[in-house]
Design a protein around this nucleic acid. Structure first.
Lengths: 229, 229
DNA sequence: AAAAATCTGTTGCAATTGCAACAAAGGAGA
DNA sequence: TCTCCTTTGTTGCAATTGCAACAGATTTTT
């Protein structure tokens, strides 16, 4: 994706966008799949936006237990400005899933009064506001999932939200492998597998590779019914 | 607190703030302790800020299980703009803990180009950005806690973050009763109580009413040690 | 194409957590 | 002060989840 096409410059002409990228001293960096994009130990207060590729924010606690904090796709933003980077008891990193192009801005550059009083400046700030709003909502969704009490509820909640966020006409898709999904739901992998198998046997979940259909179980009411066999 | 003293008007004179409160058509409402401030079913896209008092964002799922989503103190902001309001499978509400004064803004009023081109406008937007940043970090902290795998880890993580956020010189304090805390950590109350008792017996946690001291257990390394007796 | 590595799916067993029931302590209001 | 109600603290038992080990499937590398 062209740097000037990133979401921060929505509603701004390509010409102005290019000018601002200069004005902001933005940098573009490339990362290979699997490499660490940021480790939040010395990131300063840069704001990153993924132009191409995808990444995940992961945390390793002192026992080496991995948690997938967030999935970052194209146009996702990240930075210390938005993220609790944890105590010294754990390390938060952003790891490239695929090859990635990232554009970095300095937070002060975006926030400071533009000496040239460029009129597009406040549009950028508004765009940033919208991005942060979306991010807040995404974090809220994550909390919704994690606050479910059982693995089955976590899984269904996640699938439901994923399906709701899928454009109509498309088949919803789990953005992770099962192994990674278990680190996202913060549960044991084989216990998660057990629940997936149960839901499949009960006919509630159809799963083909990563594409899935979740049948409405609203009318069932009490999901513990499924656990009977 | 005076309406013009709210965080949205930081770095803006009282005079200008008052003018903008008019310009934005802000409303101030009072709520009694225990009453419902918002139920997110018809809140439109208003942004609320707590001027006085405290509240909690709660969710009830279809089985009536309660989750404390967020604790809101003075100067906290809330609104559909920031929050995943859930599927139709649950109800999210904000409930006043104490008597509350709330100021409401309409999102469009804050975001729209000010016809009078008032110069303070972009400062408000920047302040809003800072507030959202803080909120994102708070949500990240919540995810950090909920992503812990055991009750003991959830509890310690929560206490650690609470202690870290306490100004030095003050004794850290749990902002909830144990019963409510269990709904915040999304675990069973008596199971939580069991863990609290364990940590107290092990000398790691001192708890007096809601004030606590968490002794450094970094040097212990493996917290499962405490479970032995 | 073969070998290596990773991921999926399954299961028995152990550990943790939830549930229910109850006693004791603390607080609010009559 | 007494009563009622909520919260704290405890425990046995049941349900859920984690763990480990393994077989088969799938993907990647050589």
């Amino acid at each position: 994706m062209l740097p000037e096409d990133n979401v921060l410059f929505k509603n701004i002409t390509a010409e102005d966008s290019k000018r601002m990228i200069n004005c902001f001293n933005a940098e573009i960096k490339k990362f290979r799949a699997g490499s660490c994009i940021t480790d939040f130990s010395a990131s300063g207060d840069k704001i990153g936006i993924i132009l191409d590729g995808s990444a995940v924010m992961v945390r390793y606690d002192i026992n080496g237990v991995r948690t997938i904090v967030e999935k970052l796709g194209e146009q996702s933003i990240f930075g210390e400005f938005f993220t609790f980077t944890g105590t010294n008891r754990n390390a938060v990193e952003i790891v490239a899933e695929t090859d990635c192009d990232i554009i970095y801005f300095k937070r002060q550059e975006i926030l400071k009064r533009c000496e040239k009083a460029c009129k597009c400046h406040s549009m950028v700030v508004e765009n940033l506001l919208m991005l942060m709003s979306e991010r807040s909502i995404a974090l809220s969704e994550r909390i919704e999932v994690l606050s479910q009490r059982t693995i089955e509820e976590k899984l269904i909640s996640f699938l439901q939200i994923t399906a709701d966020n899928t454009p109509s006409g498309q088949t919803p898709e789990i953005p992770f492998s099962t192994t990674v999904l278990s680190d996202y739901l913060c549960v044991n992998r084989s216990a998660l597998q057990r629940e997936i198998s149960r839901l499949k046997k009960a006919g509630i979940l159809k799963l083909n590779k990563r594409k899935f259909i979740l049948h409405h179980f609203d009318d069932i009411g009490d999901s513990t019914n499924f656990t009977s066999n």
